[in-house]
Write a protein that binds this DNA or RNA. Sequence first.
DNA 1: GTTAGTTTTAAACACATGTTTTAAACAAAT
DNA 2: ATTTGTTTAAAACATGTGTTTAAAACTAAC
Lengths: 218, 218
Amino acid sequence: MTSSTIDRILDAAEVEFAAHGFVETSLRTITSKAKVNLAAVNYHFGSKKGLIQAVTDRFLGPLTQNLQAQLSAYEQSSHKSTIGEQELQALFGILARSCQQVAQQNQHSLAVFARLINMAYSQSQGHLRKHLTYQYGSSFLYFMKLLRQHMPVMNNEQFFWRFHYLLGTLVFALSSSESLVAICEREYEVSRNLDQIMSDLVLVMARAAQAPITGEYK
Amino acid sequence: MTSSTIDRILDAAEVEFAAHGFVETSLRTITSKAKVNLAAVNYHFGSKKGLIQAVTDRFLGPLTQNLQAQLSAYEQSSHKSTIGEQELQALFGILARSCQQVAQQNQHSLAVFARLINMAYSQSQGHLRKHLTYQYGSSFLYFMKLLRQHMPVMNNEQFFWRFHYLLGTLVFALSSSESLVAICEREYEVSRNLDQIMSDLVLVMARAAQAPITGEYK
DNA sequence: GTTAGTTTTAAACACATGTTTTAAACAAAT
DNA sequence: ATTTGTTTAAAACATGTGTTTAAAACTAAC
């Protein structure tokens, strides 16, 4: 049980970071929730930054691996030159399913992970952004490449923006899903789970991807 | 020039908060950038929380006022029972134009403001969220009500979720617009301004609002 | 010119943070 | 049983934080 300390730290850090952000979570609350000595973090991870990167790596590693596999299987199967909403739904569906599978396999909450990603972008944490793009940039680009084939109407720059709009939709929705679920249960007495939210998001993203590319709203 | 101190503090706090978040920005950096004594913040705003609320109020006050006016003008004009993409575009366009107008009138950057809103939701800051819903909740609901009339296919709960997806798209895209613009200029040698981004976002949101409401992505 | 109220200033306070240090406890191999 | 390397433990360190205090400077009215 020598490395149980490391896992306990990672488990505690994950939920605390997701709940209160990286900066607002102190090492002391993490180590106390993990029932571990304060110095253990610096001993095993070097620094708080090291811990933050380790927490994200533990999820993003399996995720990108899973995603890569499913994407290349999809690429070699069919749908190659087809254009349409169904193919877009399929691609976003692969992304959604990858997230859910990895979350389920590793006993993690998808909402927690989405909040982590959101934190990585909304809080400054320059080191994290660099680490993520360096480590997982290629998987990112692979997904973009496949998606690009089903959005041939627009040029590269227009696609770039459209892609990030959709990414924002996904991240923001997932990361605020827990509080939205709570509001929704209180307000409409209907409870939603992440599966339903994901299904809905896939449809929304696939439709949004096909919005016209020019025009003025004035 | 007695209240110039207050304005200088607000100006400095606004850009620092947007750039580095509420927690990672210290009162000392704010007061030094504002060329004001450290104690001035506690004297004029009571506390750091008070300053945070004042910063958001300075933008959200004029914004909701502007938005309310334009919305009621729109409501009394026409389009009342019509359904379609054009009406959705019109409503989102009103929201977009309100944001831009207020930003321009008060010499503020829209991206800075969007980042503030994003911070208010992604960082814990429970006091801010309470303050915002208490102060500006009605304007929020008014916009929702009008939008609801043009999305009659879905029930209230489905609309609730769809609405927040779109909101996430807007906030996330605007708040990360500055870094995306930079990447885009380096990568594609094309520069976009916020007007173009807003136009595009309006089209995307109007299209996404019409996505089908049920179905599985598996 | 004096006074009363407001604003600014410099210093100190109380506290929480990440990190380091030093020694103790432990594990496994010789 | 001793030794070696690794992990844990408690304490201290250095620093940055929001806030408060008390005096000084300023403003405006009488």
